[in-house]
Amino acid sequence: MSSTDTSTDTSTDTSTDMGIDIEQTIQGLAEQIAAHNPANPILIGIHTGGVWIAQRLQRILGYSEPLGSLDISFYRDDFSRVGLHPEVKSSELPVAIEDRNIILIDDVLYTGRTIRAAMNEIFSYGRPNQVKLGVLIERSGREIPIQADFVGCAMDQLDESRQVKLTNENGKLELNVIKIGANKTAASKTGAPG
C-alpha cells in the first residue's frame, strides 16, 4: 500500500485508533525475523510506511548491512489507470543484492500488488538468493497469491470499506483505520495496491 493509500481523499471519513502498540508489534516482528536467523541479510523497506518499519527493525536487529529502500511507482500495475505518482522517491539499494538474503518490509499487506511490484523491482537489480516478506499488518483482501513470512499483527475482520493507514508524526508511528466512502471503495482498492 504505502504511498498511494495516504493520498486517497478521506476528508469526510472517520478515523479509528486501533489500540495497537506499534513499537511492541515491531518488536514481535523483529523476534520472528531473528528466529529465522538468515545469513548476512539485507533489510529493504517499501516507501513510505515500510521504510519507517524497516528503520526500526534495523535498529533492533543490529544488522551490519545498510538499509535499502524501494519506491515501487515505476513498477505499479495501475500506471495506465492512475498515472505516475507525483512524488516518486528514488529507490536505494546501497549494496549489491546478487545471491543475498533479502527481507522485504512493508507496513500493510492487502491486495499483494505492491509486493509483486517490489519483487519485480528487486529482480531488476540482480538475482537474490532468497526474498522473505515481513509486514506490520496483514489484512485479508489478497488479489494475487502472495503471503507474508513474518507478521506483526493480523486484521482479518476488516472489509473493503476500511483502509489501514500508518502515519509518522515526528518519529511517532500511528496506525488508524479509516472508513472510506462506499462509492470510493472500488476505486480506492485499485488505486492502492496494498
Binding site: 511507482s73 515505476f74 507525483p86 516518486v88 522517491k89 528514488s90 529507490s91 531488476s124 537489480y125 540482480g126
Partner: peptide, 13 residues
C-alpha cells in the same frame, strides 16, 4: 522532479 528519479536508472544493472 520525476526526471530526478529516472536519472538513477542509468546506473542500474
Amino acid at each position: 522532479d520525476s526526471a530526478e528519479s529516472f536519472i538513477t536508472f542509468g546506473k542500474r544493472e
